[in-house]
Amino acid sequence: MDYIDPHIHMVSRTTDDYETLARMGCVAMSEPAFWAGFDRGSVESFRDYFRQLTEFEPKRAAQYGIRHFTWLCINAKEAENVSLSREVIAMIPEFLSSKNVLGIGEIGLNKNTKNESTIFLEHLELAVQYDQQILIHTPHLEDKFQGTRMILDMLMGDSRINRSRVLVDHVEEHTIETVLENGFWAGMTLYPVTKCTPQRAADMIEKYGPERLMANSAGDWGPSKPTAIPDLIMELKRRGHSRELIRRVVYENPRQFFSQSKNFDPTILPG
């Protein structure tokens, strides 16, 4: 089955992974800017990273017939450095016209601090100013509930934000309902130990239905599984769900969401 992974960090993965993903049905992916595992020292490090996301990764993906899209920002962890964050935010517009950029992301919170919140609000300002879609990272483990509520508070406190153009990622059982009820898109991350299993994701699809709901692998440099979406497809098939329902979650929903970006032409993907 063709599918789209709307959140995967391919800069951390090998070219062999691209080949495996293509063999398993991945036809497109989007890669939000994130933390490299260490704090970068200057805005020039981010400029090089954004060149990697907008120039190099699309070519690497194309070798295997995969369309590669991206989102730009300074991540929540490095947002603790407010002065560096402001330099990066000021530089981002240089890349917004690159043809694979879908919007601003993954912005969000990590430890739910004042500095992270300040930079999140400044990213929202950037997105509004340049009419960009937004992809959001919600915190891990014990910080997720509090951080998700703070993020929704900031989003809903700004009447200029179009909720149908915002994807709130890494939702779990205690955060999914408020995200969907308030009109945002929700992403379930299939990630060992700290996030969600394919089985629990299937439970949430059964409970809330497929509307504005998608799944991703968030494959990165840590323990993660880039082929997690095929695992979810298998779990839904095992439970007897229809091909139409599965395709909606893993293909049509991300395509519909991406289509709101001026850099995404849905006709480039299989129908």
Binding site: D143, K144, F145, Q146, R149, M150, E173, H174
Partner: peptide, 14 residues
Amino acid sequence: ARRVQLLMSRQYDP
């Protein structure tokens, strides 16, 4: 599952 998640979570202050 939701109740276990909430038990393991920091509280939200409006």
